[in-house]
Simulated assay, not measured.
Amino acid sequence: MRPEPYEEVVPSGRLMLWVGLGLAAVVVVTVGVPLAVPSPTGQDVGTGDTIALVATLVGTLVLAVGVARMRIHVRVDDVLEVRVTPFWYRRRIDPAQITSAVPMVLNGVNSAGWGIRLVPGGTALLLDNGPGVQVHVAGKRSLRFRCGDPEAFVAALEARGASVG
């Protein structure tokens, strides 16, 4: 009988929320003000400039909302899948290729900062400080990420044949 899939969604912490809100505030002030306030020299903003400013405003606001709403999705079934939404990052690992999975406490210092980071020998996904796990993969880069229950995650990997010791 197959074990039940292990699934978890780790929301971003306050840090990413404040980074997203701060980015939104900065872009509204720096891009929105030239659109709303008349120029002191009396020159109107041209159509091309207006289009560029509006496109910058919209694009950066979408990015800011994405940063504020980032989530790490972890699923262990036939493969280990770790995704960061709403962005592009997704990694799929066959449990048979996992050589170890070590629970650890993650923070910005031991993970080279917050977000999606390259660390020596691997990748770190960190949206907030707290418990996490580092997964070593045979012949590939390791993966370190936050999860709410590292022991349950390691047990789910072990149930699917991963060498977690």
Rank of each mutant, 00 (worst) to 15 (best):
R2E: 14
R2A: 13
P3I: 03
E4W: 00
E7Q: 14
V9F: 06
V10F: 14
V10E: 14
P11V: 02
S12K: 08
G13S: 09
V19S: 04
G20D: 11
G22R: 15
L23A: 15
A25S: 13
V26W: 15
V28H: 09
V29I: 14
T30R: 05
V31Q: 14
V33D: 03
V37W: 08
S39P: 00
P40D: 03
G42Y: 09
G42T: 02
V45Q: 11
T47N: 05
T50S: 08
I51P: 00
T56E: 03
T56D: 00
L57T: 02
G59I: 09
T60Y: 01
G66S: 07
V67D: 00
R69I: 05
R69Q: 13
M70A: 14
H73K: 08
H73N: 04
R75Y: 04
D77K: 10
R83F: 00
R83C: 00
V84M: 15
V84L: 13
T85W: 10
P86F: 02
W88S: 13
Y89Q: 01
R90M: 07
I93M: 04
A96K: 10
I98K: 09
S100V: 05
V102A: 12
V102G: 01
P103Q: 02
V105I: 01
V109T: 14
V109N: 12
V109K: 11
N110M: 03
S111C: 15
S111V: 05
S111G: 10
V119E: 07
G122T: 08
G122D: 06
A124T: 04
L126E: 10
L126T: 15
G130R: 12
V133Y: 02
Q134D: 05
V137R: 02
V137H: 03
A138V: 08
S142Y: 02
L143C: 11
L143Y: 13
F145G: 01
R146S: 06
R146T: 03
E151D: 14
A155K: 10
A155D: 08
A156G: 11
A162D: 09
A162C: 09
S163E: 10
